[in-house]
């Protein structure tokens, strides 16, 4: 069953603009000129309950505006949005109790106090009893590996600890729909991994629907089976991530280290040999023949090391956008 339905959604912003220079500034002060910017242009998609969908695109593509329309923060110019059966822009209390928005670059924790104080305020606002709040805090804190950090002033915490505390504050009411806007922004590799593991666990435990935007493709590839690619407010691709990678990256690079130098003449009809440097060879293999070529190599040669190098997702996405733009 679809938990999120977006149909012909558009958002047009009226933005003031002016030419550079002081005379233009004075003119602009008295006579404001505006430009209409289409941030989101007639997009439609559906997300099922419990699904994790990656929402990707370049800066200014319309990701955050879409998320904010789904939360009811920004009113759509046109189109229909339904989240868990609610119309977000009505900002019904029952709706707000079912969703959360986590923004990697903004924070709701009270800067001067320990996170536990924000958690207490949030628990009360969501009508959670003290006993239940304590139970939920303990549960989420153990999933996030947070302990004493909850009792130290937020300003003394590291970025990773702060983000984990933010997640706890955003999830204390156990929302079933999570809108995550770059939740791993600025975190080190370890902290990113922790956040990803937590999100995956939360999704499984509570069957939560998650719409995730991130510029770290590792977040997308490890959490999302499905991606929606947006560019200049329009959807470019909506489907399985593997299908996208296969479609746009039909070849794989394979790096092989043999025990002694090889010519690989027997492989020439299945792949392209791009480089042979003593006992190390790099070949480009069509995705469809990858398993055959790898097993052939393993059966017929003595191999010290073999690596299949995936095309980075970043390259695939920029390729997709370039194709689309052209």
């Amino acid at each position: 069953m679809s938990n999120i339905t977006v149909s012909s959604l558009s958002k047009i912003y009226k933005v003031p603009y002016r030419k550079p220079g002081i005379s233009a500034s004075i003119k602009h002060f008295f006579d404001r000129k505006y430009k209409l910017i289409t941030a989101v242009d007639d997009i439609s998609f559906k997300i099922d309950e419990g699904e994790i969908v990656g929402f990707i695109g370049a800066n200014g593509a319309g990701k955050t505006t879409t998320l904010k329309m789904l939360c009811g923060l920004v009113y759509p110019t046109k189109g229909i949005v339904s989240v868990s059966g609610f119309i977000p822009k009505e900002r019904n209390a029952a709706f707000l109790s079912q969703i959360t928005l986590v923004m990697g670059q903004k924070q709701q924790l009270i800067w001067d106090l320990p996170p536990i104080e924000t958690l207490k305020v949030n628990a009360a606002v969501y009508g959670i009893s003290e006993k239940e709040a304590k139970k939920r805090i303990d549960e989420l804190a153990s999933m996030l590996e947070l302990n004493d950090e909850l009792f130290q002033p937020v300003r003394k915490l590291s970025l990773g600890q702060r983000m984990k505390s933010e997640l706890l504050a955003s999830l204390i009411h156990r929302p079933s729909v999570l809108f995550l806007d770059e939740p791993t922004l600025g975190l080190d590799v370890n902290a990113q991994l922790r956040v990803r593991e937590f999100l995956s666990m939360y999704n499984k435990r509570f069957n939560a629907t998650i719409l995730l935007t991130s510029h770290y493709m590792q977040d997308i590839s490890s959490l999302c089976k499905r991606v929606v690619v947006i560019h200049k407010g329009r959807i470019f691709y909506d489907g399985a991530l593997t299908k996208l990678t296969n479609k746009l990256s039909p070849y794989r690079n394979v790096r092989i280290e043999f025990d002694k130098p090889q010519t690989l003449d027997d492989l020439k009809e299945y792949c392209e040999i791009t480089q042979i440097d003593y006992a190390i060879a790099t070949i480009v293999v069509p995705s469809s023949k990858l398993s055959f070529v790898v097993s052939y190599l393993l059966n017929n040669y003595t191999i010290k090391d073999l690596q299949v190098i995936e095309t980075p997702l970043e390259n695939i996405i920029s390729e997709l956008i370039r194709n689309g733009t052209n």
Binding site: C71, G72, A93, I99, L101, V125, Y126
Partner: peptide
Amino acid sequence: QLGTLDYVLLKPI
């Protein structure tokens, strides 16, 4: 200015 009004608007209060 900072956009943190979002957090206030998302609370059921």
